[in-house]
Design a protein around this nucleic acid. Structure first.
Length: 421
DNA sequence: TCTGGGGTCCTAGGACCC
DNA sequence: TCTGGGGTCCTAGGACCC
């Protein structure tokens, strides 16, 4: 048996955990740049605010229902996520961290009869220790655990924990209650195509001939259907496979029309990407730069530019990555467009042993020591204390909007919450 | 005026190898 | 009348996830 523990309305719940007065009120959290709604409390869902809706289209509803609006505070959410995971690991050692708000649990070593009551205990403790409400679904495959979790969230009689029934008629009933588009692995495109074939529910999908799915869709769709039948196709990944790419990108607060501002933004992304890569102990064999205009502005000419170069030898050195990123930017730059977004992607990553080139006689020790010193200063004195001049000093034009951000309650001494007596 | 950011996997087709 | 067989690697596009 597997279980999926999923935090309810995670970002909104994090905001609430430190501001109890938000309990019972509609709360939404916006994406970077205060652009779209990315999390909603139950009350916000109830007044019809959709996932992913642009904030400016919700303004009236925000006012009408006195919705509490927050910019996203990933420093807080990352730390709260860590706390939730640590709490769950006290009870179940074999886990897979699937996303910032989801954890798969391997219940196989534990035996079946205790599963539901154990998960009920986990749910209560996580709430008590972190303030975050979670729901847990229990089933023989990950896809079914996802489905069971959905039922645990929707049906109040489950009290947040639902184990998929073992006997056939009851299980069929549960599967039939879930829309095919809500199955893990079925997105909006496949959902529409499946409905066109008369497949409405998770049960219909489970009963579809898998060879058909393989032919019409692909092997991923076939696996999804098998998992719905209780055939394990995806095991728990308790050690995370090394990442293959690392991206840092942002939309700009305002449109950018001149080269200096754009290259400043790219420089910042390059520096942050290199820092992140070093913090994970990796090196990159490839760096890409990309920038683009605002795709929603049909009245303006569109342009997507960028390029990629190899890094030989692979490196995580800020000066080298920055130099290459700046070269790519100069090369791909076109005058006369209104730019809205830029980013840097590091690829061909390796972790552990660095691949040395046959003709590489360069000495990296100097660079490694320099980067270690840089990271140490920034760790002690605050991010960005030491940085290349190319990253600029004003962030004019491209700085992102973040007008409703809560404090870093759990990671900054200066921002600790106060309890008033 | 205002529309996020960061990932993975699969498939098909083309280039290239012997 | 007639033009092999078997492979790998890379890329772009499309789908999915949170």
């Amino acid at each position: 048996m597997y279980a999926l523990a999923d935090c309810n309305n995670f970002y909104a719940s994090c905001e609430r955990a430190f501001e109890p007065r938000l309990e019972g009120r509609p709360v939404v959290v916006l994406s970077n740049n205060d652009g779209c709604v990315v999390a909603r409390s139950q009350e916000a869902k109830d007044v019809g605010i959709g996932m992913g809706e642009p904030a400016f289209q919700c303004r009236d509803r925000f006012d009408r229902h006195q919705v509490v609006v927050r910019s996203s505070n990933y420093t807080l959410y990352d730390d709260m996520s860590r706390r939730v995971v640590r709490s769950i690991s006290e009870f179940v050692p074999d886990i897979e961290i699937y996303s910032i708000d989801e954890v798969f649990l391997d219940l196989r070593p534990l035996g079946n009869p205790v599963a539901t009551s154990l998960c009920q205990t986990i749910r209560d403790r996580v709430k008590q220790w972190t303030g975050i409400p979670i729901s847990i679904g229990i089933a023989p495959t990950k896809t079914l655990a996802k489905l069971a979790n959905r039922i645990a969230k929707k049906d109040p009689t489950t009290h947040g924990v639902f184990q998929l029934p073992k006997n056939d008629p009851d299980r069929a009933l549960a599967l039939d209650s879930v829309d095919v588009g809500d199955v893990w692995g079925v997105g909006s495109r496949w959902g529409a195509r499946l409905r066109g074939l008369g497949v409405r529910s998770a049960l219909d999908l489970a009963r579809m001939p898998v060879e058909d799915l393989r032919k019409r869709f692909n092997v991923v769709a076939q696996r999804t259907a098998l998992e719905l039948r209780g055939v394990v196709c995806q095991d728990l990944e308790d050690v995370a496979p090394p990442r293959k790419t690392l991206v840092r990108s942002r939309s700009f607060g305002d449109m950018v029309t001149n080269f200096e501002q754009l290259s400043e933004a790219v420089a910042n992304h390059a520096v942050r990407a290199a820092e992140k890569l070093r913090s994970e102990g990796g090196t990159a064999g490839q760096v890409s730069v990309f920038f683009s205009t605002n795709r929603f502005r049909d009245d303006l000419p569109q342009y997507h530019g960028g390029g990629t170069v190899e890094l030989l030898p692979a490196t995580a050195s800020t000066p080298i990555i920055l130099r290459e990123a700046m070269r790519l930017t100069r090369f791909a730059w076109r005058q006369g467009f209104h730019y809205k977004k830029a980013g840097v992607m590091l690829g061909d990553l390796s972790f552990g042993e660095i691949q040395g080139g046959l003709f590489n006689t360069q000495d990296h020790e100097h660079d490694d020591r320099l980067m270690a010193a840089l990271d140490e200063v920034n760790r002690k004195m605050g991010a960005g204390t030491l940085r290349p001049a190319a990253t600029g000093v004003t962030a004019k034009g491209w700085r992102m909007k973040r007008e409703h951000c809560s404090p870093k309650y759990t990671t900054s001494w200066r921002e600790l919450p106060f309890a008033k007596t």
